[in-house]
Design a binder for these strands. Structure first.
Length: 231
DNA sequence: GCGACAG
DNA sequence: ATCTTGTCGC
């Protein structure tokens, strides 16, 4: 079942408004909790796919058992594109529909894994941070690119890390999830520590570079978008 | 001022 | 993100 969502009332309509929202909500991020132990409970991946031509966005939330990585539940939602893509303001484009997909789940999500950044953000409030503050859930961000941040190449073996740096501040880590393959970029969202976020990411990558959560959420939201086009 | 820039 | 064929390899 796919739920349909409108753009929320009061949603920012300018970049200036959106940045002001980030500056305000940032105060509510919790950074001093370790987060759920890797391999226990639920882990949920969220992702979105777009059809800018038709102004449609589809989101998916996929709940896995953290220990076996088997499917527990999944939900999708479709909505209107709520913001243009602006680097640093990605959350305003994705969050309304992602929230609807999470709400449609029949069980608690546990840790939420986002496709993008949390703390590693120009104002230290990326998608994962934003989603965490709005839901109260523990969240992390796992991105495929280093954005504007600096990093050294991690050593070759899976599990190797290097700091993601904004100046001298460590805002995340480059984490090698497969031997010799381009690393992913992990940052903290809400209520999870950086070492625990990296441990979760490793637990979610037994076979591929990207976490099973995001792989499955990606496949599901694309399928939901296709159903929107044909049905 | 110019370019770069998560998805 | 999305547009897109074949191709090399496990």
């Amino acid at each position: 079942m796919t739920t349909t969502v409108p753009v929320p009332d009061g949603w920012p309509s300018t970049e200036e408004q959106a940045r002001a929202v980030q500056d305000e909500l940032r105060e509510h991020v919790i950074l001093d909790e370790p987060g759920p132990p890797p391999g226990t409970g639920h882990v949920t991946g969220v992702d979105v796919a777009y059809d800018d031509e038709r102004d449609v966005v589809a989101a998916a939330a996929v709940v896995l058992d953290a220990s076996s990585l088997s499917l527990v539940a999944e939900a999708t939602a479709v909505g209107r594109v709520s913001f243009p893509y602006v680097p640093g303001l990605l959350a305003f484009r994705e969050i309304p529909t992602v929230l609807a997909a999470l709400d449609a789940l029949p069980c608690p999500p546990g840790l939420v894994v986002c496709d993008g950044y949390g703390l590693a953000h120009p104002r230290r409030f990326g998608l994962a941070s934003h989603l965490g503050v709005l839901t109260g859930l523990p969240t992390i961000g796992v991105a495929k690119n280093p954005f504007t941040f600096a990093h050294d190449d991690p050593a070759t073996p899976r599990g190797s890390t290097s700091a993601l740096l904004a100046g001298t501040e460590e805002v995340g880590r480059a984490l090698r999830t497969r031997d010799g393959v381009k690393p992913v970029f992990v940052s903290v969202g809400h209520r999870v520590s950086l070492p625990v976020a990296c441990a979760h990411t490793l637990a979610l990558t037994p076979e591929y570079r990207l976490p099973e959560t995001t792989r499955r959420a990606d496949a599901l939201c694309r399928e939901a978008l296709r159903r929107t086009r044909s049905g």
